[in-house]
């Protein structure tokens, strides 16, 4: 038995909660990605500036998500700051997962609103 398997046997994980949390996060990311597309379209950004806005806004909203949804319960459990292991398996998944999944939705609404506002 490998060590990670043994770890799982000792500290079992509730699969339903994992699915629920991942769904909540991905829902949020896909919604906000389209929203950022609307913002970039209204602002009339082009090329790199639009992607930069997407990156900055994504980082800000992920931080906000951490502060509002994760931090109260996580810090009460005496976990270190920016630790998401109470709700998510991988830290990288939480911090960067939405960046790539929302990119296509972002470009879609970005081009749509750029065209709507300026043509």
């Amino acid at each position: 038995m490998s060590s990670s398997e043994q770890e799982l046997q000792i500290h079992p994980i509730v699969q339903e909660s994992v699915v629920h949390n991942a769904k909540t996060l991905s829902n949020f990311h896909s919604l906000t990605a389209s929203l950022f597309g609307v913002t970039a379209g209204i602002l009339g950004l082009e090329s790199y500036a639009g992607f930069l806005l997407y990156l900055v806004l994504s980082v800000i909203t992920t931080l906000l998500f951490y502060v509002i949804q994760v931090a109260p319960a996580s810090l009460a459990e005496k976990k270190p700051l920016f630790d998401t292991t109470r709700f998510f398996k991988g830290a990288l998944d939480f911090w960067t997962g939405g960046l790539f999944s929302g990119l296509s939705g972002f470009v879609l609404t970005w081009t749509l609103f750029y065209g709507l506002v300026r043509v």
């Binding site: 500290h11 079992p12 994980i13 509730v14 339903e16 909660s17 994992v18 629920h20 949390n21 909540t24 829902n27 949020f28 919604l31 906000t32 929203l35 950022f36 609307v38 913002t39 209204i42 602002l43 806004l57 800000i60 909203t61 906000l64 998500f65 509002i68 949804q69 994760v70 319960a73 459990e77 109470r86 709700f87 998510f88 398996k89």
Partner: peptide, 30 residues
């Protein structure tokens, strides 16, 4: 520009606030 940015942040704040509460994944905590 300012209105657009503020509106975006407001909507995402509302979305975060309104999203369902997360559940602990570790069995003993849950």
């Amino acid at each position: 520009s300012i209105e657009t940015i503020v509106a975006t942040l407001l909507v995402s704040l509302g979305l975060i606030w309104g999203s369902p509460q997360l559940r602990p994944i570790q069995w003993h905590v849950w």
